[in-house]
């Protein structure tokens, strides 16, 4: 029997230079239509000249454990396949956009065909034993997809005592993108 998985992504903000290779890799891999994206990069600069600090974050669907898109989806098109991800079944989707309104991370868009679409953690690649396209392309090795059910030592090595930031935790969504700052 296949072991249960729980995928999450660790994103090292110190390594990230914000080049957006992740975005382009995703767009080709998943044939994301022109004018939309499943992942994106946010650059945040704080302070006044010359005392500045910068944080760069590659962002995408958080694959929340308590995903408002899933609870708000009227047809069950957004669902948990059981590997820790959140997926959209485009055969069930009516394009009502409730999931888009529900997502605190604004991670979804409507594909021109009519269904809601977003990052899948490249589920199709994971099934083939490959890493997601963004993770593979990233020149700075900023992105790491981790199975939280697997040995925690990998995770500890990855975190290495650093602070972890999660986005909008007060939304209660239990997001699964972890930014190392």
């Amino acid at each position: 029997m296949a072991r249960k998985k729980k995928y999450a992504m660790f994103i090292d903000t110190l390594k990230c230079v914000g080049c957006s290779a992740c975005v382009y890799a995703c767009k080709s891999e998943n044939q994301v239509p022109e004018g939309f994206c499943r992942d994106w990069v946010v650059q945040k600069t704080e302070g006044t000249f010359p005392h500045l600090s910068q944080l760069i974050r590659s962002e995408r669907c958080q694959h929340c454990e308590n995903a408002p898109c899933v609870t708000n989806c009227p047809t069950g098109a957004s669902y948990y396949p059981g590997d820790g991800t959140v997926q959209v079944d485009r055969n069930l989707c009516t394009g009502c956009k409730a999931c888009i309104a529900a997502c605190p991370y604004d991670a979804r868009y409507i594909h021109p065909v009519g269904f809601a679409d977003k990052c899948t953690f490249c589920q199709h690649r994971l099934k083939e034993g490959l890493q997601p396209a963004c993770v593979t392309a990233c020149p700075t090795e900023t992105l790491k997809l981790v199975d939280l059910m697997e040995n925690s030592s990998t995770i500890e090595d990855l975190v290495n005592g650093r602070q972890i930031v999660k986005d909008k935790v007060h939304a209660g969504t239990k997001p699964k993108l972890f930014w190392l700052v």
């Binding site: 009227p74 069930l92 394009g95 009502c96 956009k97």
Partner: peptide, 26 residues
Amino acid sequence: LDLEFKIHFWRFYTAFIFTSPMSWGA
């Protein structure tokens, strides 16, 4: 008219999602 995938309208009735107001509405 607002639905982006109008021919899937009937999909509201292949599921009942008790956390979704839209499902309740349907």
